[in-house]
Design a protein around this nucleic acid. Structure first.
Length: 425
DNA sequence: ACAATGGTCC
DNA sequence: ACTCGGACCATTGTA
């Protein structure tokens, strides 16, 4: 306990006097209550969407079979691979191989988009069948008499992050053509509203704080767009001249840092040459020397102690860090870097949940969901504005990092509306 | 029942 | 040869 406070103080943080085990103990009842409350699904809208996608998906399937010139099981990667690369003879040179032959993963198929019109149809079909089989078909069967879905929260034993299963409500689509359509069907009870509160860049803020990297600390204190700032650094270009594409690359680099970046991994994610990815990383670490030092420190610590730990003292053991197999050792190195960041982010969220749960007990409002850096509360319309203010206040101040913690709040009749009404400022 | 493949989220 | 962190879940195909 003393060690934890000392460490926090050294980093310029103000934190509750708790260790991770205290947090988890207090969180238990909060999670059980959330499971019990559940979230309401607009089953009628869900079924409507289901029918729409089913029709669309059958049409696509027919077109694909016609183009393939042979009936086959589209859901079977081996069969699809056979069709694409044997029957249609698409070039497989740049495509990853797997146990069964040539990969048909989306990232690989993307490379073939301009070789044959069947590719786009397959990608679209995959998207629809994913939505149907994972969300649209199963979820309506799981609602209770009040049309509410009850997930089961658990905890990842390695990082302490919260998990959701049966059903998993932490991977409900948000991107893609139908993501927002699906989220629109997660609604508030009549007379209520949903309030969504999102931490803004919480993991990067934690990296900045744990590493004390002066450049990144300044960026967050100045309140600048962090990805544009990184782009400006990597591409040696003024922020105002940064293109959307450059910003996108920089965003991936920033995420890469959190994950324990490697040139190969970055090149795969961005679909670029490994040498170019290496160049980005080199430039990044040259400017963010504090982050570079932090990463090295974590790896050294893991080698010396056999574990790394979060701000609140949660430990992850990493014996593989001394493995003679390089891929294994490197994997452990990435975990040494990532786990304190991801774990600390989880702890910040959990502490906010505990505080919020207590404050809401006097109100009608109820916590109903958490998705890693987001909290959702359902509240009577009359209370919504006040509850929103309360959530923001608690989430931004329960744990004080050495830089501001920022939370975006949105209110709406459904999950989509709540997220989109967040005022960007 | 289980591995492999693929895909959704943060 | 090299898989950027962490989950959960669906389907196929083999055992």
């Amino acid at each position: 306990m003393k060690e934890i406070l000392k460490k926090a103080e050294k980093l310029g943080c103000k934190i509750p006097h708790k260790k991770w085990s205290d947090i988890d103990r207090e969180l238990g009842p909060v999670l059980r209550a959330m499971e019990e409350t559940g979230i309401k699904l607009d089953v009628f809208e869900f079924q409507k969407l289901k029918k729409k996608l089913k029709t669309q998906s059958s049409k696509l399937k027919a077109q694909i079979i016609k183009l393939a010139g042979k009936d086959f099981n589209l859901a079977s990667p081996p069969q699809l691979s056979e069709i694409l690369f044997k029957k249609l003879k698409l070039p497989a040179d740049d495509i990853k191989k797997n146990k069964f032959g040539i990969s048909t993963g989306a990232s690989e198929l993307m490379k073939l988009r301009h070789k044959h019109k069947i590719i786009d149809l397959i990608l679209e079909y995959r998207e629809l069948s994913k939505l149907l089989s994972t969300y649209l078909e199963p979820l309506p069967k799981l609602v209770d008499d009040d049309s509410r879905l009850h997930t089961h929260f658990g905890e990842d034993t390695r990082t302490s992050r919260l998990t959701s299963s049966d059903p998993n409500l932490q991977n409900i689509p948000i991107r893609g053509s139908f993501g927002s359509e699906i989220r629109k069907a997660f609604i508030a009870e009549k007379g209520n509203l949903l309030i969504s509160a999102d931490y803004s860049q919480i993991e990067l803020r934690i990296v900045a704080c744990l590493s004390q990297d002066v450049v990144m600390l300044k960026a967050f204190r100045d309140g600048v767009d962090i990805h544009s700032k990184t782009a400006s650094e990597i591409f040696d270009t003024p922020v105002v001249k940064i293109t959307n594409e450059q910003r996108r690359v920089a965003k991936t680099v920033n995420f890469g840092v959190i994950y324990g970046i490697s040139p190969y991994g970055l090149s795969q994610t961005l679909g670029i040459e490994q040498s170019r990815a290496a160049e980005y990383i080199l430039r990044y670490f040259k400017i963010h020397s504090g982050i570079k030092r932090y990463c090295q420190e974590q790896v050294d610590l893991a080698k010396k102690l056999g574990y790394v730990e979060t701000l609140f003292g949660f430990q992850r053991k990493l014996p593989e860090i001394n493995s003679p197999i390089r891929a294994v050792a490197e994997g452990a190195q990435r975990m040494a870097i990532n786990t304190p960041v991801q774990g600390t982010a989880a702890e910040v969220l959990k502490l906010a949940m505990i505080k919020l749960y207590k404050k809401l007990s006097a109100k009608e409002a109820k916590l109903i969901l958490t998705v890693h850096d987001e909290l959702i509360v359902e509240a009577p319309k009359t209370e919504a504005q006040n509850v929103a203010k309360l959530m923001k206040e608690i989430m931004e101040n329960e744990v004080k990092l050495c830089i501001p913690v920022e939370v975006e709040i949105g209110i709406g009749r459904n999950w989509n509306e709540a997220k989109n009404s967040a005022n960007k400022s």
